[in-house]
Deep mutational scan, measured.
Amino acid sequence: GIDPFTGEAIAKFNFNGDTQVEMSFRKGERITLLRQVDENWYEGRIPGTSRQGIFPITYVDVIKRPL
Rank of each mutant, 00 (worst) to 15 (best):
K27L: 07
G48S: 06
S50V: 10
V21Y: 15
G1S: 12
F13H: 10
L34F: 06
N14K: 05
F55T: 00
I10T: 06
G53R: 00
E39F: 08
F5M: 12
D61Y: 13
R45A: 11
E29R: 02
I31L: 06
P47I: 09
K12N: 07
Y42K: 00
R30T: 10
G17W: 03
Y42V: 06
Y42R: 02
E39V: 09
G44W: 02
Y59G: 03
P56W: 02
S24N: 07
S24L: 02
G53F: 02
N16F: 13
I57T: 09
E39K: 09
V60G: 02
I57P: 04
G7M: 11
T58E: 13
P4G: 14
Y59Q: 06
P56G: 02
F15W: 08
P47F: 09
V62Y: 05
G44K: 00
I46G: 01
G44F: 02
M23Y: 01
Q20V: 15
S50G: 12
G48W: 07
I10K: 06
F55R: 00
K64F: 08
K27G: 04
Q36P: 07
I10Q: 05
G28T: 02
S24R: 05
L34W: 06
F25L: 06
L34D: 05
S50L: 11
T58H: 13
P56M: 04
Q20Y: 11
F55P: 02
Y42S: 03
T6N: 12
I2V: 13
L34H: 04
V60F: 02
T58W: 14
F25G: 00
D18I: 14
R45Q: 10
N14Y: 05
A9Q: 02
G1T: 13
R26I: 14
G44I: 02
K64L: 08
R26E: 13
I46W: 01
D18L: 15
D3N: 12
E43M: 11
R51E: 03
E39H: 10
F55L: 06
E22M: 13
R35H: 08
S50I: 10
R45D: 02
I63S: 06
I2Q: 14
N40E: 12
S24K: 05
I54F: 10
G7Y: 13
T19P: 06
K27V: 11
D38N: 12
G28C: 08
R30G: 04
G1H: 11
F25V: 03
G17T: 06
I54K: 07
T19R: 14
G48E: 08
T49Y: 03
T19D: 12
V62R: 05
R35Q: 08
E8W: 15
I63G: 05
Y42E: 01
L34T: 08
V60W: 01
Y42Q: 02
F5W: 15
F55E: 00
G28I: 01
R35E: 04
F55M: 02
F25I: 07
T6S: 12
R51A: 03
I2E: 15
Y42I: 06
P4M: 15
G1A: 13
P66G: 05
T32C: 11
S50K: 12
I46D: 00
V60R: 00
F5Y: 13
F15M: 02
K27M: 09
W41C: 07
E29G: 01
K27F: 06
T19N: 13
L33K: 02
D18E: 14
V60T: 04
Q36F: 07
S24E: 04
Q20K: 13
N14H: 10
F25E: 00
F15S: 01
G17L: 03
D38H: 08
V21G: 15
D61I: 15
T58G: 12
E29W: 03
G1P: 12
I31D: 00
G53M: 01
A11W: 01
E22K: 10
E43S: 07
Q20M: 12
T58L: 12
D3L: 13
G53Y: 01
A9M: 05
D38V: 05
E8T: 11
D18S: 15
I31S: 00
F25K: 01
F5C: 15
P56R: 04
Q52N: 07
N16I: 15
E8H: 11
S50D: 13
Q36G: 04
G1N: 13
A9N: 01
Q20H: 12
G28R: 02
P66R: 01
I31F: 01
R45K: 12
L34I: 13
M23I: 06
D38E: 07
T58K: 13
G17Y: 02
R65S: 14
K64A: 07
I10R: 06
I54W: 07
D38I: 05
K27N: 05
I2R: 12
E22R: 06
S24C: 07
P47A: 11
M23G: 00
Q52Y: 09
E22A: 08
Q20I: 14
F13Y: 13
R65T: 12
Q36V: 09
V21K: 15
I10P: 00
Q20E: 15
I46F: 04
W41A: 04
A9R: 02
R45P: 00
V62T: 07
D38C: 09
V62G: 02
I46L: 03
I31C: 02
Y42P: 04
F15L: 02
E22C: 12
F25Y: 01
N14T: 10
K12P: 00
R30A: 07
I57R: 08
L34C: 08
G28W: 04
G1V: 12
R45V: 10
S24Y: 04
N16C: 12
N14M: 05
Y59R: 06
F15I: 01
G7A: 08
D38K: 08
I63L: 11
Q20P: 15
N14D: 15
I63D: 05
Q36L: 10
G7E: 08
K12C: 08
I31W: 01
G28A: 03
E8V: 13
E39D: 13
R26Y: 10
E29C: 03
Q36E: 10
L33Y: 03
G17N: 04
P66C: 07
T6W: 15
E8I: 14
T49R: 02
E22Q: 13
W41Y: 12
F15P: 00
R26T: 13
E22G: 06
V62W: 06
G7N: 09
K12Y: 03
R45L: 11
G28V: 01
N40A: 10
R51T: 03
I57W: 05
T6L: 13
P66V: 05
I10F: 06
T32W: 09
T58R: 11
Q36H: 07
F13E: 13
N40P: 03
V37D: 02
E8F: 12
D61H: 12
E22P: 02
G48I: 02
N40L: 15
Q20S: 14
F15D: 03
I10M: 07
K27P: 05
I57V: 12
D61G: 05
V21N: 14
D18C: 15
E22S: 08
W41L: 07
G28H: 05
T19G: 13
I2W: 13
E43K: 05
G44E: 00
K27R: 10
Y59V: 07
K27S: 08
L67I: 15
N40Y: 15
L33R: 02
P66K: 02
E39W: 08
Y42A: 07
V37H: 07
V60Y: 01
I57M: 10
G28D: 06
K64T: 10
K64D: 09
G53H: 01
P56N: 03
N14P: 08
K12V: 09
N16P: 06
N16G: 06
F25S: 01
I10Y: 07
I57K: 11
R35D: 04
M23Q: 01
S50Y: 09
G17H: 03
R35F: 07
P4E: 14
F25A: 02
D38P: 02
F55Q: 00
T32D: 09
G48R: 06
F25Q: 00
W41G: 02
I63Y: 07
P4N: 14
K64G: 06
T58A: 15
P4T: 14
I2F: 13
V21R: 14
A9W: 05
V21E: 15
R35W: 10
G28E: 03
T49F: 02
E39G: 11
W41H: 12
P56C: 04
R26W: 10
K12H: 05
R65E: 15
P47N: 10
I46V: 10
T19S: 14
L33W: 02
I31A: 00
L33Q: 03
A11F: 03
T58Y: 11
P66L: 06
N40F: 14
Q52C: 10
P47T: 10
Q52P: 01
Q20N: 13
I10D: 02
V37Q: 05
D61N: 10
E43T: 04
T32S: 09
Y59I: 05
T58S: 14
R65Y: 15
E43H: 09
N16E: 12
G1W: 10
V62D: 03
N16W: 11
D3E: 14
P4V: 14
V60M: 03
T6F: 14
G44N: 00
E8M: 12
E29H: 01
T32N: 08
Y59W: 06
Q52G: 06
T6H: 15
E39I: 09
P66A: 04
G7T: 10
G48Y: 08
F15H: 05
L67T: 15
F5N: 13
R26M: 13
R45C: 13
L67M: 15
T19Q: 10
N14E: 09
G7W: 15
D18N: 14
F5V: 10
R30Y: 12
I63A: 06
R45F: 15
T32I: 14
D61A: 09
T49N: 03
L34P: 00
F15Q: 01
R26F: 11
D38Q: 06
